[in-house]
Nucleic acid binder design. Structure first.
Lengths: 352, 352
DNA sequence: AGTGGTATTGTGTGCGTACACGAAAATATG
DNA sequence: CATATTTTCGTGTACGCACACAATACCACT
C-alpha cells in the first residue's frame, strides 16, 4: 500500500512532530491530555501533510460494534414493493458488516397501525445506535421519533417524510415533484381538455399522507400550465381487488375518464381490471417497478411507470447510518431520489 | 468487530485443524506446499464455517499495488460530456486508493485519432495491470486491445463497445435499444406520419460507429410499429456551430421536419440554432445531461434528453478493475446502463 | 530536597491477514 | 544407515491504527 513515499500515516506525523504516535492519536481524536502547543504543532503537520487516516486500519483496530434497527413494512401479498428497500438494506449490510455493524429487522403491517407501535416498542426496549424507518403512519412515527430523540438514538427516514421534524436524513422521493412529473407525462398521452382521475388505493390516508402530496403535485401541473383538463380524485380505502374494482366500476359508470393516475404501486390492480373488462381507451400512469406492473407495462395497458429507486433507498439508508457513526461524516439532511420514467422500451435496463 | 462468537478468522480454522495459520493461509490462496489430506481437511472446515475473509485485514496486510491506466477522450470545448465519466472514475479512485490502487490518466482528442495512438503507446511502454478505456476509434482501439491481450493486460470498455471482441467487461448503454427508445418517445411528441430526421454530428463515423447503432435502433422502432412516418438521416462531419448550422439550414430549406433526433450530446448546438432562428415547430430529442442541454430542456426547445449515467460508467469501470484484481470477483462481461428519460420536470433530480 | 498530585507523553499489544524465512518431517540418494 | 533433497509446516513480523497502561515531566507545598 502506498509503497511510494513513506511519508504517510500517524507514524510519520509523530516523527515530524517529535512525539509518539499516541500523542498524535490524541489530537486526531481530539482527546484530552495534550498541551496546547504540541496540539497546534501536530494539527499543523496534519494539515500540511493532508493526512487521511487509513479507514481499513482504523476500523480493524477499533473493535467497535454499532447496532442498527430497521423498521419497515412487511412485504405483503398485495404489493411486493417493500421487498426492494429490504434488498437494498441487505446489500448495504453485506458490504459493511465487516466493519462491526449489527442490524436487526422489525416489520409492521401496512394495514394495521398497531403493529407499528408494537415493533417500535420492541426497538425502544432494546438498545440501538441508529434506526432506519419508513414512517408510514405519521402520528405513530412522530411519537416514536420523539422517544428516539430523547434517548439520543438517530433516525433515518426512507420512502416518505414527515414535516416539521428533522431526522438524521430523509432518503426518498420529492413526492410533490413526482406527482407533477406524472402530470407532465399525461400531456404526452392525451390532448388537453381531457378528463383525468387521480386514484388513491390506500387503507390509511391522513391529511399529511404521502399519496396526497403526489396528488397535489399532479394537480399543480395542470394549474401551472393553465390546462383545461378536468382533474378529479377518488380514494378507495380497501386494497383488495374486489373492492377496488367495485369502486372504480361505479365511478366509471357515471364519469368519462381519459387518463387515470394511480398514486402508488397498486396500479396493477387497476390494470388487471382494465384488462379483464377490455378497457383500452383509458391511459394509465402509476408507480413502481414491480413484476406485476411491468407485466402490464409490457402489454401496453400501463403507459408509464414512475419509479424512485426503492432498492437504493434502502441501501443508502443503512449506509447513511454507517457513514454517520463509523466514518463520522456530515450527513445530508435530505437525499432526494431521481424520478425515473419507465416505458415499455426502457424498463428492461432499469435498476432499482 | 464480530465480538460475538470467537469462532471466526483463520486463527479459528487453524485451531480446529490443528495446524498453523500459515498452512491455512496456503490453502486459502491455494499455494503449493500443503499435503493433500491437510488441504482437504482445512477446506472442509472452511466450508463448514462458511469462512469469509476480512477484506480489511487482507488488504491491510497484503501491501500489493495495482496500477490502472485510464484512456478516455479529453473534455473538449465543444462538449463537456467526458467530464462525467472522469468524475466517476475519480470518485471510485478516492474510495479504493487506500487499497493500494494507482491510477494514471491518458487523454486523447475526439477529433484526432492519432492522439489515441500516441496515448495508447505510452500506456504500452509503461506497465499496468488493467486499463479502462473508451474505444472511440474502432480500428485503433482494436489494435490496442490485441496488444494488451498479448501482454495479459485486462481491459474494460466504457461508453461504447466493439463487436467480436471480449474485454473484461463492457460498461455502457445498449446503443440500439437506446435509439429505439428515442423512437418510442417521438410517438409522444408528433402524430404518426410525420417527417423525422436523424442527425449525426461527429467527425468520425465508420460503419461500426456507435452513433449509427443508435440510428439503427431509432429506425427499427418505426419499422416494428409499422409507422407511416418518414425517417431520414443526415450526418455532419464538422462539429463547430457554424458548420452544423449551415448544413442543417440547407437541409431544412428543402425538407419539412417535424422531429429531429440528435444521436449524441451535440443536441445543444441544434437547439441553439433553433433558438436563434425562432424555430419552434420542430420537436427535439437528444442525449446527455450537460449544462448546455439542460438549459434548452428547461426552455422547452429540447423536449427529451436521453441519458446513460456517464458518471456511473466511469465509477463502475474503475471498480470493475478493482473487483477483478483485488477482490478477485467474477466480472459480468456486459454491464448495461439504464436508459433514462429526462424532461423539464424531472431533470433536477437526476443523478448521472 | 522530598512528597503528592496533575498534566502530558510514551510503550506495547492487538485487530485479521499476508508472507518471508526457517524448521521439521518425509522421501530420495549413495 | 548417513546424507542430500524435497515436501510440508510453523514462527515471527508487518500493515496502520486504537487504546490500555506505564512512564515521565511539571508544579506546588511542606
Amino acid at each position: 500500500m502506498q509503497k511510494n513515499n513513506e511519508l504517510s500515516g500517524v507514524k510519520e506525523i509523530a516523527r515530524r512532530a517529535n512525539v509518539s504516535i499516541a500523542t498524535v492519536d490524541r489530537v486526531i481524536h481530539n482527546r484530552t491530555g495534550v498541551s496546547a502547543k504540541t496540539k497546534e504543532k501536530i494539527e499543523a503537520i496534519i494539515k500540511e501533510m493532508d493526512y487521511k487516516p487509513n479507514l481499513l486500519a482504523r476500523s480493524l483496530a477499533s473493535r467497535k460494534v454499532f447496532r442498527f434497527a430497521v423498521l419497515i413494512p412487511r412485504e405483503s401479498a398485495e404489493t411486493e414493493y417493500w421487498k426492494a428497500p429490504l434488498e437494498g438494506i441487505n446489500r448495504a449490510w453485506t458490504e459493511i458488516r465487516m466493519y462491526g455493524i449489527e442490524v436487526v429487522f422489525f416489520h409492521y403491517e401496512l394495514n394495521d397501525r398497531q403493529t407499528f407501535n408494537n415493533e417500535a416498542n420492541k426497538i425502544l426496549k432494546d438498545s440501538f445506535h441508529g434506526i432506519l424507518l419508513a414512517p408510514s403512519f405519521i402520528s405513530e412515527a412522530l411519537e416514536f421519533f420523539y422517544k428516539c430523540e430523547a434517548k439520543k438514538i438517530k433516525c433515518v427516514f426512507i420512502n416518505s417524510d414527515i414535516s416539521n421534524v428533522s431526522p438524521l436524513s430523509y432518503i426518498g422521493p420529492d413526492l410533490f415533484q413526482s406527482g407533477k412529473l406524472a402530470g407532465n407525462l399525461s400531456k404526452y398521452l392525451i390532448p388537453d381538455g381531457g378528463n383525468i382521475l387521480i386514484f388513491n388505493v390506500s387503507r390509511e390516508l391522513g391529511a399529511e399522507h404521502h399519496l396526497l402530496k403526489k396528488a397535489t403535485g399532479f394537480k399543480s401541473y395542470f394549474e401551472e400550465n393553465k390546462s383545461s383538463s378536468t382533474v378529479n380524485m377518488l380514494t378507495v380505502h380497501r386494497t383488495d381487488y374486489d373492492s377496488v374494482m367495485a369502486e372504480l366500476a361505479a365511478y366509471l359508470k357515471d364519469n368519462t375518464v381519459d387518463l387515470l393516475f394511480v398514486t402508488n404501486s397498486r396500479v396493477s390492480t387497476v390494470a388487471k381490471y382494465f384488462e379483464a373488462n377490455n378497457i383500452t381507451n383509458i391511459k394509465l400512469i402509476g408507480y413502481d417497478y414491480l413484476t406485476r406492473n411491468i407485466e402490464y407495462l409490457e402489454k401496453g395497458i400501463i403507459d408509464f411507470l414512475i419509479c424512485q429507486k426503492p432498492i437504493e433507498q434502502g441501501y443508502k439508508g443503512l449506509l447513511t447510518l454507517y457513514d454517520y457513526f463509523v466514518e463520522s461524516e456530515k450527513i445530508d439532511k435530505v437525499q432526494l431520489m431521481p424520478i425515473d420514467i419507465l416505458t415499455k422500451e426502457n424498463y428492461k435496463y432499469y435498476k432499482n
